[in-house]
Amino acid sequence: MDRMRALQYLLKVADTLSFSQAARAFDVPASSISRRIADLEAELGATLLHRTTRAVRLTEIGALYVEQVRAGMSQLREAEELLGLRSATPSGTLRISAMPSYGQLLLMPALERFSDRYPDIVLDVHLSDALVDLGRDQVDIAIRGGRQPQARVVARKLDSHRFVLVATPQYLAEAGTPENIEVLLHHRCLLYRGPHSLIRWQALTAEGWQELPTVPAFICNDGAGLMAMVLRHKGIALLPGWSVAGYLQRGELVRIELAEPVSVSRAGEGGIYLLYQAGRYQVPKVKVAVDFLLAALSQPD
């Protein structure tokens, strides 16, 4: 039995809880996936998966086994890539995950310059708001906004994640500039839809944080789409400061200052973080990418 292949199949089934999805990932029949894992179970003398006609899930011992296998496979990949230390030229595929808006606006221009400097590195960029597990998802570098992560990763702050209310001068000339949240609620509010729900605005009032009962004039799950509507004078949006800085400097947008702070979260502004696993920094392609992106994207608070 090809133990390595069986383990790869097992990890994919554990991630997807589906033989058919795992089969599509490896471009093999689902029966091959099932048979290889069954052979592995027989060799180990343990049941790793509960199978029914409708679902598949890990057994208790299967979950523990998968956790150890995943760690071992990650170490094996790192050991193989460390062989590249003998080469003076960083190379290989570099997998990067980033938030769509940040990726399109700031990361991609930086990666164009990075690619010119390191042509032997193949960039595999995935733009998504979905959270990633660097080890499980085989991602070398992730860029995410929020509070500083605590577990198992190195987090280097690139920028603040402060949200600001903005609109065009034309919109404000026609609709007026709100000075408090009561007036704001009568304006056309453009809202962002996150991966799981609509992102409601929060205001810090004298009574504490409260969710604003805005009636959305427009909703979009794409930051570029939301920005386009703001620039077409369609209303007021609450956007990250890093995404609107250029528009504010050019006078295309105006920042709206209210008596009460407004944000998308009650937890504070957070930051934009570049994330990577400490052990992976020894791999040449990861090291040069981390160093380059920190120099290209880091902003003073």
Rank of each mutant, 00 (worst) to 15 (best):
D2H: 07
K12Q: 10
V13F: 00
V13K: 00
A14W: 10
A25H: 00
A30E: 11
A38H: 05
D39I: 04
E41T: 09
L44K: 10
L44G: 05
G45V: 07
A46H: 07
R51A: 07
V56Y: 14
R57T: 15
L58Y: 12
L58Q: 11
E60R: 13
A63T: 14
L64D: 11
V66K: 14
V66L: 13
V66E: 12
E67S: 05
Q68S: 11
G72V: 11
L76A: 15
L76Q: 15
L83P: 01
L83V: 03
L85K: 04
L94Y: 01
L106C: 08
P109Q: 14
A110K: 13
E112N: 05
I121P: 01
V125T: 09
H126A: 08
L127F: 08
R152Y: 06
V154T: 13
V154R: 07
R156E: 15
R156I: 04
R156K: 08
K157I: 00
K157V: 02
L158R: 05
D159T: 10
D159V: 02
L165Q: 13
L172P: 04
V183C: 04
C189L: 15
L190C: 12
Y192N: 12
H196V: 07
S197L: 11
I199C: 15
Q202W: 11
E207L: 10
W209E: 07
W209P: 02
E211M: 10
I219Q: 12
D222V: 03
G223E: 13
L226N: 12
L231W: 03
R232A: 14
I236S: 04
P240E: 06
A245R: 15
Y247T: 01
V254T: 11
V254E: 00
R255A: 12
E260T: 07
S263G: 13
S265W: 09
G268I: 07
E269N: 05
I272T: 09
L275P: 03
A278H: 08
A278N: 10
V283P: 01
P284I: 05
K287R: 08
A289S: 09
F292A: 02
L294N: 03
A295L: 09
A296C: 05
